[in-house]
């Protein structure tokens, strides 16, 4: 016989102090003021409070990359970050990059190269692709960069390495690479 009480996460409801916080986010250029449960992730603040559901929840543990969006210009796994930590921050989501009628070049390249199937990882892939190109342009090295003193090349190897935090179970990797290279070369 054994007993089971999964974890202690629920106990904190008895802790003193406020359980919600007012948080001001600038999301896709618009100021949004939220009163959120302190436990709310940035991901859930976007999806549930702001109903910006383009940012996806694939694992909620920072393992799949589907929740990738931008905080002050840098990509983050928004499931690993609490909304209250972002008071005053600028958030850019997939919805902020483009619309079906006016797609960002990367969004259009993903369509042109069929860089997805089910589409669930796609917003995260596109945000990571955008960040990958910016990080390469900024000369930031990666695990596969051979010469740390030179600018890393816009090579398939560099792109694949930097995109590897974004899982695509449909296996569209080869097409995603084509899409990213296409945009990289156009720049």
């Amino acid at each position: 016989m054994n007993t089971h009480s999964d974890m202690q996460a629920g106990q904190d409801t008895a802790l003193p102090g406020p359980t919600t916080s007012k948080t001001r986010l600038v999301v896709n250029g618009t100021e949004r003021v939220l009163e959120v449960d302190n436990r709310t992730t940035l991901l859930d603040a976007l999806r549930e409070h702001l109903r910006l559901t383009g940012t996806k929840k694939g694992c909620d543990h920072g393992q799949c990359g589907a929740c990738t969006c931008f905080v002050n210009g840098q990509r983050v796994n928004s499931c690993l970050s609490l909304a209250v930590m972002h008071d005053g921050d600028e958030i850019t989501t997939i919805e902020g990059l483009g619309t079906p009628e006016d797609m960002d070049p990367l969004q259009a390249a993903f369509v042109a190269h069929d860089g997805f199937q089910c589409g669930y990882c796609t917003p995260g892939q596109i945000c990571s692709a955008k960040a990958t190109l910016e990080e390469l342009r900024a000369g930031i090295p990666s695990h596969v960069t051979k010469d740390l003193l030179a600018n890393p090349p816009l090579s398939p190897e560099e792109i694949k390495e930097r995109m590897s935090g974004n899982i695509c179970r449909c296996g569209a990797y080869a097409n995603i690479l084509e899409a990213v290279l296409d945009v990289a070369e156009a720049r």
């Binding site: 999806r47 109903r51 910006l52 559901t53 383009g54 940012t55 996806k56 929840k57 989501t93 997939i94 919805e95 990059l97 483009g98 619309t99 079906p100 009628e101 797609m103 969004q107 259009a108 993903f110 369509v111 042109a112 069929d114 997805f116 589409g119 669930y120 796609t122 917003p123 596109i126």
Partner: peptide, 21 residues
């Protein structure tokens, strides 16, 4: 023919089950 649901999926506008607010 390009995937017809492509523009919705790549811009985060295709609503999946949990997102049907």
């Amino acid at each position: 023919v390009p995937r017809r649901d492509g523009p919705l999926k790549t811009t985060g506008r295709a609503p999946y089950a949990y997102e049907r607010h």
